[in-house]
Design a protein around this nucleic acid. Sequence first.
DNA 1: AGTTAGCACTCACCACAACAGAGTGCTAAC
DNA 2: GTTAGCACTCTGTTGTGGTGAGTGCTAACT
Lengths: 342, 342
Amino acid sequence: MSALTERKKQILAIIIERYIATAEPVGSKAICAYMGNAVSSATIRNDMADLVELGLLEQPHTSAGRVPSQAGYRYYVDNLMTSYELGVDEQERIKIWLQSFSGEPDKLLEKAGNILAELTSCVAVSSSPSDDEAFIRRIELVPLSDHTAMIVLLATSGILKSAVVRCDAEINVEIAEVFYNICQTYFTGRNVADITLTFIQTLVASLGDKVFIMSPFLCAIADLCSAVKTTEIHLKGQNNILNHTELSEDAFRLMDFMHRGTPLESIINSQKKPLNVSIGTENPYKELRNSTTIFSKYSVGERDSGAIGIIGPTRLDYARLISTIRYLAGVIGTMLTETLDE
Amino acid sequence: MSALTERKKQILAIIIERYIATAEPVGSKAICAYMGNAVSSATIRNDMADLVELGLLEQPHTSAGRVPSQAGYRYYVDNLMTSYELGVDEQERIKIWLQSFSGEPDKLLEKAGNILAELTSCVAVSSSPSDDEAFIRRIELVPLSDHTAMIVLLATSGILKSAVVRCDAEINVEIAEVFYNICQTYFTGRNVADITLTFIQTLVASLGDKVFIMSPFLCAIADLCSAVKTTEIHLKGQNNILNHTELSEDAFRLMDFMHRGTPLESIINSQKKPLNVSIGTENPYKELRNSTTIFSKYSVGERDSGAIGIIGPTRLDYARLISTIRYLAGVIGTMLTETLDE
DNA sequence: AGTTAGCACTCACCACAACAGAGTGCTAAC
DNA sequence: GTTAGCACTCTGTTGTGGTGAGTGCTAACT
């Protein structure tokens, strides 16, 4: 595969970079100029013909310049791209943006999505950390009024979920005590995956009439546990779809696709390497056949917990985006790990 | 203004209803058929010419049918539209959808936005209840770990806000006691608008070194108070913009407009009547000149607290949408008022 | 007066042809 | 292997003529 001559690589790189910058097919003459007229346009034409032969370039029509094919982008990303280091100022900016984070992982990832969308002019997708092997670290009951209370559940993964519950009986100290006793006995330290609604049902039944009144609280706990292991997905910068003219004809389908949710979840969950670039038809969904997705996993502690990335056209400034996403994922990872340690 | 003959009104109504249904200009012959050939197409043409004269209709070009003008829609909404009663099954469906609501106003309004977007195929906008005259009903400190705690603030408006705070010192019973004392003395019962960051600063200064450590908690409270009075806006179903072909050329601008946030906020806050329909240029923003907005305020207790509505093209099924939005706003109001009473 | 039939007219839409321009592919020479 | 030269191809644009839907107007009718 790497049987390309240096010049062909150079030509391919120029075409891709020019095309990324201008969205116009690149002609032999323009390339010639970009190479400082080292060789003539005819020579370049010959090389370009070979590159088309290899499937790395495409010509929209006979008399247009060349455009990178998906394989061309792939080759570029794998072999040609000069890796780009995020400037210190940009790094600082990102950190400052994220600084307001105070300990709620969900909010951090939502914010990170916003930043990424802003920075890349693409649609940003981020998933809150999810961990179905998480344990319940702590459950708290926060009385709000005579008949309502908030239940706060903290998992070992650092994830925090809360819900407001209404209760027919008055929520007094006695009830709170019963609640904490039940939590201590049946919930704290258990795997969130164990706390299902059916588990709650059998539990309530076994506890008998006395604590029947607890039932809404316990159901809420089950819901929170399921929320802990559910991947929560944040979609930001959807308006950016319309920025990219090459996507405009797919815009509707794409929008719809992204709002369906589950496919995105499966994409997020299927990230193999730390950083994945899927170009066009490399994506598992046909709606993305003209799009590129770039996702980076982030880790909390030693665990891969979620991912953040973008969906954009295939014509992307890969070098910049990859380093941005990688950096962001790194920062998220360290921030979340820090909170975990405490 | 109501100097229109009955027949002209009928013609106008038919044109609008046909156009709403088909998005095609309506010709005299078609109207003739819809009127059961009661009069000839020539007569209708004469009437249509008058309606154009009055500015209620427009013709895209000489040889096309007629299309409602913005003024036409306005006349229709004000005088012609047969009000539509939401079916009981639809009412039930909405209630069941919203049922999962347990006491967090923010979540209820987010959900309501989702429902509305679903139901109308428009972009739904909803604002969480905001009330800058709300008082602090309750503040709770929920310890999460040695150095982090969650602060929960409940306002008299029923709004619930929470934040996680990190603290250098260990959060023990002693600190909690100091916290609650401060809350009791300086916060509970006060107007949220009073609790500004500068207020906190002077407070911290006056309390002296001993409680300097409380500072992050108190700042968090100030943030929560400002969140209570801030209008929080939920935007749902943005993918629906692309459903409406007549908006497609404005789609980009519209998307951008909606993502800017502040204009939406000002629209929400400037709702005069319980239910407002703004057609095209009646909207205060030029980006909406081809759009219609329909918003209904909802009330918690006796107070107008927020609004919910849609942004769509001018070609809308006004009757259905208006009744849907009105109903939804009513349900939201009662649900929120109920939680308030407790 | 209001209504109607009849008819010329207007304009968007479509298809087809002509044309210019950009960029190529190929050939023959270097 | 490289280059100059040139015919060729294809797109995008412009212009023309035909078609059809729907109108506006006039003159006759009730």
